[in-house]
Design a protein around this nucleic acid. Structure first.
Lengths: 263, 263
DNA sequence: CGATATGTTGACAGTAATCAAATGAGGTGG
DNA sequence: CCACCTCATTTGATTACTGTCAACATATCG
């Protein structure tokens, strides 16, 4: 069957966007989506290394990643740079600048990337007349809080092997969701970036890749990743010897117990 | 001069709340504050150990801490508990549950604590008619994203000494803001909780306290903290040999360079 | 093709985790 | 009020993961 490209496709509007369920249009009536489209600016794909915004820059817009990937970095008091996140299609970035109206972080494309730019003043104004849109903005921010929490665990209490494993599984899942292979993919970021994000030095990163290979879990060739043993990876990501995920236990006090970082 | 307690004081309403500038009423017209007060439920102070909500519980309300302190904990896949934050007066908690309508974390009072409970459905409804309120909710969530980012740095790339130092300075600042002593205060949480939050084991926590004492920076007696050398503490918190905080450099690429964790 | 940046490998060092045990604090019952 | 129990905290000895330093290999780019 031959599919004819329509004008709507060419415009790449929200209605046809495969990611709309992760983005602002979710739960919006068709008429509201139309209004939203009126303020969304779709940028042409930008090249690797292009800045969406830089730290200290005045806040005007939030951005939704449509294709490609973006890293956000923060400048520490001592001059170091810390990568606060890698952002894949469906994620909205720049929300951390709303309070101060000045970007606390820098966002740069890791590969050829297209984003939707949404001027925040326009969004706020539209939201004032469109409760569903406001609610969705709040939900997206709630999602952001949630995801930062889960990465916080990973980076504080997990070994290098576990950090890398979780990271690889997260990317695998992402590619699977987009209809691509879950077992073979290409990481868009450098080893240095990956190490920085995971709170490790590049040397440790390199050695950790090699260790995962030695265990027969993955196969690495440069940025190309092949996941060989999903089960082993998942087991490792939970922490060795871990019992399976505990469901909510709403009526008992939960005491902290460490399964140990090194065991 | 003698100040007579009025009925408003007794009600502890938003208008008289010293924390309103950190909370939802900020930037609201008086009439809107009145409406907000209509939905805020002020709980009597709760005892140490009282749960505000538990992981897995259905999400109904967000909570603003008015006095005391609250810790929020997350349950990891392997059964461990991780403390995601200590929350002091002026902070709003429960925002991470908006998306899923189910609390991803547990919140428990660390000491005698009073909170304002704000039923979220009511807040959303009121927000639909009160743009300034909606905007303030979004700003508060943006603040949450910001603060999670900054703690992420702390916990991934900083030594035990630096983590504890930053923590102590943060509490010091908090008490100073409330008109209490910046140099002498009592930590509301146990060593175990503190260690958990900072991504350390209790033994390391204990030794780190002792090391800070040995350097003449602080004096510790149980939970009582006295900060002796603020300058030294601040220097340490930035990382030894760090240049002062870099202002925004919006027109130059910032390259990652590590000042080293152990130096 | 040369220059520079990125990634890898090896030797070594150091911080923090682990294991073990003692001490101290708080709470309960006698 | 004190003995006793339990749990939190501290201290010591040891282990080991990850950082640091240095050198080499590989990629990338003009």
């Amino acid at each position: 069957m031959i599919r004819i490209a329509t004008l709507s496709d060419a415009k790449n509007n929200c209605r046809n966007c495969r990611l709309s369920s992760l983005c602002l249009p979710e739960n919006l009536a068709q008429s509201d989506v139309n209004k939203l489209e009126g303020i969304v600016q779709r940028r042409k794909p930008v090249a690797r290394g292009t800045y969406l915004f830089r730290v200290g820059q005045r806040f005007n817009s939030i951005f939704a990643v449509r294709t490609g990937s973006v890293k956000t970095t923060n400048l520490l008091a001592n001059g170091d740079e810390h990568i606060s996140g890698f952002h894949l299609p469906g994620e909205v970035i720049g929300l951390d600048a709303i309070l101060t109206r000045s970007h606390p972080s820098t966002a740069v494309a890791l590969e050829s990337t297209s984003v939707c730019e949404i001027p925040f003043n326009d969004l706020e104004t539209l939201g004032d007349q469109t409760p569903a849109l406001q609610h969705q903005l709040v939900r997206i921010m709630s999602r952001g809080l949630l995801s930062e929490q889960s990465t916080a665990h990973l980076l504080t209490r997990r070994s290098a092997e576990q950090r890398l494993t979780v990271m690889l599984l997260k990317f695998s899942e992402h590619f699977a969701n987009r209809g691509l292979s879950a077992s073979r993919f290409r990481l868009p970021m450098s080893r240095l970036d990956l190490a920085n994000y995971l709170g490790l030095v590049p040397e440790t990163m390199s050695r950790t890749f090699r260790r995962l290979e030695a265990q027969g879990l993955v196969s690495i060739t440069g940025k190309e990743i092949e996941i060989i043993d999903f089960y082993g990876m998942k087991e490792l990501s939970f922490g060795a010897g871990a019992d399976t995920a505990n469901a909510a236990t709403p009526d008992r006090t939960i005491h902290f117990k460490s399964s140990g970082m090194y065991r």
